[in-house]
Design a binder for these strands. Sequence first.
DNA 1: GCTCTAACTTGAACATGTTCAAATTCAGCG
DNA 2: CGCTGAATTTGAACATGTTCAAGTTAGAGC
Lengths: 228, 228
Amino acid sequence: MAIVLPKTRKGENSRAAILNAALDLFRERGYEATTMRAIADLAGVSLGGSYHYFPSKEHLVLEFYRHTHELHLVAIAPLLAREKDLGSRLRGTVRAVVITCEPFHAVAGSIFSTVANPSSPLNPFGGAARPLREEVVALYAEVVKGSDARIPADIAEMLPLTLWLYQMAILYFWIFDRSPGRLRTLEVIDETTELIVRLLGLANLPVLRSSRKRILGLVRSVAGGSIA
Amino acid sequence: MAIVLPKTRKGENSRAAILNAALDLFRERGYEATTMRAIADLAGVSLGGSYHYFPSKEHLVLEFYRHTHELHLVAIAPLLAREKDLGSRLRGTVRAVVITCEPFHAVAGSIFSTVANPSSPLNPFGGAARPLREEVVALYAEVVKGSDARIPADIAEMLPLTLWLYQMAILYFWIFDRSPGRLRTLEVIDETTELIVRLLGLANLPVLRSSRKRILGLVRSVAGGSIA
DNA sequence: GCTCTAACTTGAACATGTTCAAATTCAGCG
DNA sequence: CGCTGAATTTGAACATGTTCAAGTTAGAGC
């Protein structure tokens, strides 16, 4: 079950060939229609070969996800360097997620399903996925911090984690979106990011004070138990 | 693929035996560890027999849903007949969900992951689960309607569906909850239901008017595309 | 009671993810 | 060059969800 890293040049080649074959076939046929035998054939290794570097078919999907995360980082770097408005930063970042993931829309369901399984070590709330999760949370921390919005400290503390959860919800919506160009998802992103910014602005209203405390306590409690 | 209903007494017995065997084994060993062969053995039919009444192993899970849903209905009937306060009705209803599902807590994770896959016929947003989903939404409509709370019409329209989504979120939290007696989930239910009632009370604040419109439009849009 | 048909049941066969013991390769070393 | 041990590779074997053609049963109609 442990992930074995290649120790030789030859091993590196094999691992890369397997991964590329898997990514190509996933994109071309989808996850379920891609058999481990087809991956092995295309990679030029035997059936068992893949299991030397990837403990399971699902682990190949996770490599897929890691790949898109890196594409995402590259895609939004200019925006984050330039833009100061929180709404624009948030909208651009989340839009970039779904745009980056677009080539993999057909596979995304299986990714999500894999990732949603609480008993899997790959669960985003669990330990194994922790580095990647923290990278994404840190990204949202930067989205907020690099803006000119003044966020109260108690909210700022929990906001990145909340935005990460929000992104997961958007991705789940996106998986179901069959509209051309995934326009509906983009619309929902525009609506929700604007809503988030507006609600942040309203958070200091006296009448909302107690709800704010309650919500923050809730987020803290949920995050504290399941994630941290 | 079509679901075949038994036409004879013998058929009814077989179907019931298969279903009972499946529920018992799911509860005892979990979803993945329960093989179709074990189900068939325990039910006293041959391997292929199950497929006459249940198109797939996942469809047996759907029956499991229905089973717990019916237990849930029975559990909350007295409360809904007696209580008029919205917060109490909501809290009691959602508490009853997790209490009803408690015997299946260990299984719930793998079931959730199976079912979260959008390509699964059992996906709660998809077609096969539609009748059951509509029953649950109708239940929440009754929770609201039978209360003495006065809910604006535009909110009342989308509230049951939103509460169903909320229930799903609670269930996902519950899956991760390792606290004794699942006390943390119950606490979160108490917190969130009170928050929901409070926010409903605030919905008429002028300053929230535009956010309210936005949120309702969002829910309507999300529901219209993926679910209805 | 006999026949016929639809309902029901069977289990071998298949597809595919996974395992694992054995075979092969290869770089380093004397 | 030949040896050695680790890294890599192999493919047969296994487990399990699913299919399906063939067999069996039971009840309606006569």
